[in-house]
Design a protein around this nucleic acid. Structure first.
Lengths: 122, 122
DNA sequence: CCGGATCCTCTGCGATACTG
DNA sequence: CAGTATCGCAGAGGATCCGG
């Protein structure tokens, strides 16, 4: 007999990525091939996310080691830039697998009908 | 220039699986190699889920085509059994990828230190 | 008894405004 | 520009109830 263990690595990982917006932020940081993106740049692309939640998720992702945050205060206005860490980049293939799964099993539309559509860069 | 599109297949999939408990329920239905599991059986294994949320998630998963629900009213008490569909089973490798990722990048413990630990059957 | 539904509470998300 | 502060609401958690 087994029971779901709170301490299980998989359990904790799934609980972490099951927070709203988390995966989409990871994907947004990956898209376009840029290694750094600014707070406002992320926010502008993800139209429906609120500044509070974006801020919360970025902190969580940093704490979990998936992204890094760098502040350039040498000039004004101050620039804050976010990048994927190696571990964060290594999560992208999992998101790609989700897309491949979705293309196979879910009805899809013209916006996103191929694996390499420009909408999500996957 | 691109913007996150609500209609995007990937967007919708990520939004769907990003609901609390969804992935854990899928995993629970996979574990142990049984093809069917009863409501109470799932609930007992996932100690912290409440009957309300379990019921909601099972309905969503059924609607999304990942699981099926069969009621056996031929005897008493009535049995309700849930199984993974082909599409649902095809999602398990993605969860396995998450575990592999977690084992590589996150500190893990004795409960779950190998890919084939009996705790999650992945 | 089993598989939920119902009621209530409380945390998390959303919307808007504002600041160093 | 990059976030906080404040408030309101929907969805998750807890306990109990109920029809078959």
């Amino acid at each position: 007999m087994y029971t779901m263990d709170d301490n299980c690595t998989v359990y904790k990982t799934m609980d972490f990525i099951s927070k709203k917006w988390t995966l989409l932020i990871l994907l947004e940081l990956f898209k376009g091939g840029k290694d750094k993106k600014r707070y406002s740049e992320i926010k502008d692309k993800m139209e429906d996310i609120t500044p509070k939640v974006l801020s919360e998720r970025l902190k969580e992702l940093e704490k979990e080691g998936l992204i890094t945050r760098k502040v350039d205060a040498s000039q004004f206005p101050v620039k804050t830039e976010y990048s994927l860490t190696e571990g964060g980049r290594d999560f992208i293939p999992i998101i790609r697998q989700m897309k491949i799964w979705a293309l196979k099993w879910k009805p899809h539309n013209e916006v996103c009908e191929s694996v390499d559509c420009e909408n999500c860069d996957l």
